[in-house]
Design a protein around this nucleic acid. Structure first.
Lengths: 230, 230
DNA sequence: ATTACTACTAAACGAGTAC
DNA sequence: TGTACTCGTTTAGTAGTAA
């Protein structure tokens, strides 16, 4: 994420300069004055200004009694990025994603049956954007943290798959969340597909056969990054 | 402004933690994981976490496979402060204040006459909040920068003092801006009180006799921080 | 007044490693 | 796996000062 080391020090300096109006107009700011604002020495402030100038974040004109400083478009963009980052964080109701970790185990094989029911499958394709491999990867959550996280997740807005009934029985509604498995495969977390398992179990689907694709065996730890919806 | 040195490094770390959702919920974040996000070593990330913990910005629970981290109310407040700072900067149309510098000179002494006209005086008290000393401090702007800044200022919203007429003549409207003179005295900048002087001259008023109060003599440099209106 | 160089000091970093 | 200590190395910070 951070393009360069200590970019944030530059960002912070830029923020201070903006507080002096340098994002809107050319402001006369001496390195000594900036130094006081930064709680650093004049020399350090001077170095920072040189750094910012070299990065192209500010435009400097040195005069006998101070620098005329204006934050460039590039610099302003950096500040705006920080701003929208913060705005997103402070105003979003939920974190952008939460991560669950569980251990692979073999279920009763019913996953395939449910996943491949046509009314479900059609909705998976429509609402999740992929045609699910007929089968689920069962993960047993091993820590209190993961179980707690899973239960918090239930309060988050989900992609709702509607239930249906055929001549024989009723299939309940299902809550799904887009997810990334092992930082590699796009798929989805499926909650309450069946009630066989308790709150310490999650089921994951994807367009591929996850066990094979990720070379998973029973007992392997798997990380699932669940994406919450805006 | 900065309460402590390098507080911004802590702030930045806090921001990264928030990006992992730690501002809304307890998140499991290993120092190694944080280190990657910060582009630093695991040891450094660990140190940062200890610092944040000591500051009371986060609550940490160390478990065998990672830290459970939640940003505290105190930490969240810091992030919010940064956020509102930025919001103010990015969304305000004008910088909060701009600084002019000029050299004291003696005018024709008409300032006193204008300032003490009762309809003006009444409005100064009402709109600026002080009873002006009958006289103005004349400042000659010496650099191009200051002249340019002064002219930019004219576009900013001002406190408008209405003109009036008496039996003899007409007194024009006047634009004033609250100002702080030499970082010490609250007063106001007065533009276009008369047309005698060109754009390189400003006039300053205050409730006190500025020349005496600040021990000013002709030729002294004076700094005027002009406060722009929200 | 300024800026910013050089030379030095202080602090932060991270490799190795204990737990 | 984790965290976090020590300690040698690197980097940042500042005093003095020239321009």
């Amino acid at each position: 994420m951070a393009a360069e080391k200590h970019e944030w020090r530059n960002l912070f300096t830029l923020l201070k300069l903006a507080e002096m109006g340098a994002h809107r107009r050319t402001a006369k700011i001496s390195s000594e004055y900036l130094a006081r604002k930064l709680d650093a020495s004049q020399q350090t402030a001077s170095r920072y200004l040189i750094e910012l100038d070299n990065k192209g974040w500010i435009k400097r004109t040195i005069t006998p009694d101070g620098c005329l400083i204006k934050i460039t478009e590039v610099g302003l963009k950096e500040l705006k990025r920080l701003y929208s980052n913060l705005r997103f964080l402070m105003e979003a109701e939920y974190p952008p994603s939460i991560t669950l970790e569980g251990v692979v185990f073999t279920g009763l094989g019913e996953g395939a049956y449910y996943i491949s029911r046509e009314p479900y499958r059609k909705q998976f394709i429509e609402k999740l954007g992929f045609d699910p491999y007929p089968g689920t990867l069962n993960l047993k959550l091993t820590t209190d943290y993961d179980v707690k996280t899973r239960s918090e997740l239930e309060a988050y807005p989900a992609i709702e798959i509607e239930g249906f009934k055929n001549e024989n029985r009723t299939f309940g509604p299902v809550k799904t969340y887009p997810a990334i498995i092992e930082n590699k495969v796009k798929g989805a977390l499926v909650l309450a597909l069946r009630s066989h398992y308790d709150a310490s179990v999650i089921e994951v689907i994807a367009s591929v056969f996850l066990r094979k694709h990720l070379k998973l065996k029973d007992g392997h730890k798997v990380k699932v990054e669940v994406l919450t919806l805006p």
